[in-house]
Design a protein around this nucleic acid. Structure first.
Length: 189
DNA sequence: AGCGAGATCGTCT
DNA sequence: GACGATCTCGCTA
């Protein structure tokens, strides 16, 4: 895949990128695995950090697509996003732990594979994400981001842990994976 | 299994 | 002064 095609992939609305990112492979300094769960946030989205405009902490969301937006959640957890078009971003919520499991276990303080990087805060800790990675390109070290199977079956649901715009179906998951942060409820009519 | 509280801090009201 | 794109632990059942 050429460099300009990779750039175009992230220069699209966040929901489309979040959907297509399922099954891709992400590592930070060689630690990571297959992306199993994502959520999309857009600028005209009350739940998005970019909704109220550009601030010091969220400036990365208004920057270059395919770069990292890293923020501190609830004062203690570190969460990793990938910037998309129009001040949107994809929150990485869960990985299949495949590479550097010993490093993940050490950082997380547990050997249970389900507790290594299932959940945005756990993922950030397992991969050693910190605020110095904010604004860094996902195409450059320490990151490595590569496409996975294009036909990976994808679950769709509403986003988790937010109080506004709860109805938007912008949560995506790798179908059948046991590494989702929470199950995808069956669609209710 | 499910609920409730505490940790912890920058941003906003 | 309150509130999060969260996680963990302790309690109840």
């Amino acid at each position: 895949m050429s460099a300009d095609l990779r750039g175009d992939f992230f220069d699209r609305p966040a929901p489309a990128v979040a959907r297509d990112l399922i099954g891709w492979n992400l590592t930070v300094d060689g630690v990571g695995g297959t992306i199993a769960e994502t959520e999309a946030y857009t600028q005209d989205d009350e739940a998005s950090h970019s909704f109220r405009g550009k601030r010091m902490a969220n400036a990365a969301m208004f920057g270059v697509p395919a770069h990292a937006y890293v923020y501190r959640s609830y004062g203690l957890h570190i969460c990793l996003n990938i910037v998309c078009a129009n001040a949107g971003a994809v929150l990485l919520r869960a990985l299949v732990p495949e590479y550097g499991q010993a490093a993940m276990a050490s950082r997380r303080g547990t050997d249970d594979p389900r507790l290594l990087c299932s959940g945005p805060g756990r993922l950030g800790q397992a991969l050693g994400i910190d605020l110095t990675l904010n604004h860094r390109s996902l195409h450059d070290p320490p990151f490595s981001l590569r496409p996975g199977r294009p036909d990976a079956p994808v679950l769709v649901g509403t986003r988790i842990g937010i109080s506004r715009a709860k109805d938007r179906p912008w949560r995506f998951g790798l179908s059948g994976s046991r590494f989702l942060s929470k199950p995808f409820p069956p669609f209710k009519p």
